[in-house]
Write a protein that binds this DNA or RNA. Structure first.
Length: 466
RNA sequence: GGCGUCGUAGCCAAGUGGCUAAGGCAGCGGUCUGCAAAAUCGCUAUCGUGGGUUCGACUCCCACCGACGCCUCCA
């Protein structure tokens, strides 16, 4: 079945048709490396991960580019405060970012270009925009003139009239040079606040504005028109709107076919953002003892266009859900029965589960509904678990491994049985046969202390690590 | 002021103009078990409020209440 994605540009679910068959070109707005990324940032990166993983699951080749914004007001300000060069300062947070996404099992992008490595590409673009009359100089800075771009506002669905009234009273004092309040800066003339951070270019001494990096780098690595551009909803305006204006102004071509935006993660009902101070970092959650899988699962299990009200409760619930699923895997791996009379029935259940999952995911990545199909399959399999044979167990594991290509949270390596543990289990079985339950319980408690939980089932003893 | 999203059980969360409103977590009761655990069965929702359209709405329309967001750096 075809994949449908909600396109912010049209406010509709649209069937996804890539420019090149079976290939996806994807640009995902990355972090500004002035601090650690917080849990809200990570939600967006995880949404993008699910998108990438699902494309790969469906057999697409994915080329994903994620930028690192390593020059802007905040990176400059913080580096000066800490007495470090801009590069030394941002390098700390680039590495921290890579570590965080690795912990959360996020598939790496093909490339993570940094803004500061692409100054010449940006200069070239700005020069051309100026030549075309879409930009103007003022006090050494260069601004994009939005009223030269007739489609300005098409992404955010804001018209230029509303922009003017909406922005009244919010003019910051250093922006008086602009002809129009919503014109945005392409190149910022150097000021003393920027310290040592500047580039001497044909445009003058200064640094790039924020929006231009994404246009320059996405087009460099993905072409003038590419398939998908993503980010958080807060990027819709002005960031992505401005990207469209400068990119389409520059090329005269359509910039991006599909714009996808993930909703916010709220904390105590409010948007989590560094400026509000209500931020949670990954390391906080790990220090509280939550597993990285539970954290990942708690952030991916909701639809990406729904707001999530984040709390430790949702990680606890996710953790319990994952434990149950992993335990199911464990039991499937320990099936001892050789033959099965119900193999066809099992296949039917698995096929239905897989179809349910795919149909849901095809519908704009409706993962909550997709998970429902998986749990339904697990439930049906549990009902007939006593009758399952080894072959069924393998089929079920294959099914879950397939699903987990997208989810990336399950544990298939739980049952490496050390010999001495096996000895204890045998010893306990003897005790049970002799109805020496006191001794049997002692062994069970002993193993529990060692982190091995035993379960007596009709098909024998099943154990798992806890 | 302009634009927009959302309000489904104790918590989280899908979904649909009309069959029993998915699923997860938690709880209670039963089955199974030497006891547990796991599993399983049962129980827990007049789908924010008030109107309207319709043979029929939780689903469409209007109003209201409430939550949140964008319009300014922000995932």
């Amino acid at each position: 079945m075809s994949l449908y994605l909600y396109n912010t540009l049209t406010r509709k679910k649209e069937i996804f048709i890539p420019i090149k068959q079976n290939e996806v070109s994807l640009y995902t707005c990355g972090p500004t490396v002035y601090n650690y990324v917080h849990i809200g940032n990570l939600r967006t990166f995880l949404f993008e991960d699910i998108l990438v993983r699902y494309f790969k699951y469906k057999g697409y080749k994915v080329r994903q580019i994620m930028n690192l914004t390593d020059v802007d007001d905040k990176t400059i300000k913080n580096s000066i405060v800490h007495g470090l060069s801009l590069n030394d300062y941002t390098e700390i947070y680039k590495q921290a970012f890579f570590k965080d996404i690795e912990i959360l099992n996020i598939t790496p992008a093909e490339k993570y270009p940094s803004a500061t490595d692409h100054i010449s590409e940006m200069v070239k673009m700005i020069t051309e925009l100026e030549k075309k009359g879409l930009a103007y100089r003022s006090d050494g800075s260069i601004y994009f003139k939005i009223n030269t771009f007739k489609d300005y506002g098409k992404l955010a669905h804001i018209d230029q009239e509303n922009l003017r009234t909406g922005a009244s009273g919010r003019v910051s004092s250093d922006e008086y040079e602009k002809e129009n309040i919503n014109d945005f800066v392409l190149w910022k003339a150097h000021t003393k606040d920027d310290g040592e951070v500047f580039w001497e270019t044909s445009l003058g001494k200064g640094r790039p504005g924020w929006h231009i990096e994404c246009s320059a780098m996405s087009m460099k690595y993905l072409g003038e028109t590419f398939d998908i551009h993503t980010g958080g909803v807060d990027n819709i305006f002005p960031h992505h709107e401005n990207e469209i204006a400068q990119s389409e102004g520059f090329t005269g071509k359509r910039f991006v076919n599909y714009w996808l935006h993930s909703e916010f993660l709220n904390i105590k009902g409010e948007k989590s953002s560094k400026s509000k101070g209500n931020v949670i970092y990954l390391k906080d959650l790990l220090e509280e003892g939550f597993s990285k899988e539970a954290i990942r699962f708690s952030l991916i299990q909701y639809h990406y266009r729904s707001k999530v009200n984040f709390s430790s409760d949702i990680i606890l619930q996710s953790s319990a859900t994952l434990d149950n699923l992993n335990h199911f895997i464990n039991r499937c791996q320990q099936i001892t029965k050789e033959h099965s009379d119900i193999h066809e029935q099992v296949q039917l259940i698995l096929n239905k589960g897989l179809k349910g999952f795919e149909d849901s995911m095809d519908d704009d990545l409706n993962i909550s509904s997709g998970l429902g199909s998986i749990f339904e399959a697990v439930n049906e399999l549990n009902k007939i678990f006593d009758q399952l044979g080894k072959g069924d167990g393998h089929s079920i594991i294959d099914f879950l491994k397939q699903i987990d290509q997208v989810l990336g949270v399950l544990n298939f390596n739980q049952t490496i049985l050390e010999e001495d543990i096996k000895k204890y289990i045998d010893e306990r079985n003897v005790a049970r046969k002799e109805k020496d339950f006191k001794k049997a319980d002692q062994i069970r408690d002993y193993l529990k202390d060692m982190g091995i939980l035993l379960e007596d089932t009709k098909e024998g003893v099943v154990w798992k690590k806890i």
